[in-house]
Design a protein around this nucleic acid. Structure first.
Length: 259
DNA sequence: ATGTCCGATGATATCGGA
């Protein structure tokens, strides 16, 4: 079974990329983030035509998550328990479904903007709520997987040059403590291998030739419970998908599980 | 081979967010 996650930065802008990648990579389940598309406007028929069911949660221009699956999609759930709000609203950043016995969450953790911004505190609270929801879900789902754009680099080696991130979000102790809460809940990170170079970056800014210079970050992450982690046969970041015209600024992360 | 990109706005260039 192949499970993947990809921040596609607008499903409508990226439809051709996503369908081509589905044909090439043949994932059984794909978690999407930043669909930037209202729930009812998600192009589910396109995925149906390729043999995938889908569920989506969105609110138009910002955020938005979805799961597409060709191995079943049941027990769909929107949002975390007590999900923190931004400007008085629960944003579409979390959706879950059970696919072939695996409880899958597609997650888009808030960016944080800058460490002195309210959005940063929102991000930290969001990570705390995520770890609590994960712990609660574990009661009913021993095969639990969290996938998505976490907007946190787990270690200094997960950015191209830690010196370039002084004073920035994504690399702070508090954000990494948020990831540790997920591990404390009983999940382990599935670290992908790179297809090229020494590190498996998943994001490269559109600006200043970041991709050709490989100035990347590893911020799209996968966490799994021990029964699932024990089934992992391969995991990689597919930088090929970052290439070409009108690509997303993120690359997919792919995880293979033994049946 | 790639020096932003996306979506929204009483738009037709500018802005917030990433």
């Amino acid at each position: 079974m192949r499970i993947a996650t990809w921040n596609i930065n607008s499903i409508n802008r990226r439809l051709e990329h996503v369908t081509a990648w589905l044909e090439r990579a043949q994932p059984d389940v794909l978690c999407l983030q930043e669909t930037k598309c209202a729930t009812a406007a998600f192009p589910e028929m396109i995925f149906n035509g390729l043999g995938y069911e889908s569920v989506a949660l969105g609110a138009g221009a910002w955020n938005g998550v979805a799961i597409v699956s060709r191995v079943g999609l049941t027990d769909v759930r929107d949002n975390l328990t007590d999900q923190p709000e931004w400007e008085g609203k629960v944003e579409p950043r979390a959706i879950a479904a059970t696919c072939a016995g695996v409880r899958v969450w597609s997650l888009y953790i808030p960016n944080g903007r800058t460490p002195d911004h309210d959005h940063y505190h929102y991000k930290l609270k969001w990570l705390q709520a995520l770890s609590r929801t994960a712990a609660a879900e574990l009661v009913d789902h021993e095969s639990l997987m969290l996938l998505g754009d976490f907007n946190v680099a787990p270690t200094d080696d997960d950015v191209y040059d830690i010196a370039a991130f002084e004073g920035s979000t994504h690399v702070t102790e508090q954000e990494r403590a948020g990831l540790k809460l997920i591990e404390a809940a009983g999940l382990t990170e599935i670290e992908p291998r790179p297809l090229k170079y020494d590190r498996a970056f998943t994001f490269w800014d559109y600006r200043q030739l970041a991709f050709p210079k490989n100035r990347g970050m590893r911020i799209d992450l996968v966490y799994a419970t021990p029964p699932l982690a024990g089934r992992v046969t391969d995991a990689y970041a597919d930088r090929e998908a970052r290439k070409g015209k009108s690509a997303s600024d993120h690359a997919p992360v792919v995880v293979d599980l033994a049946d």
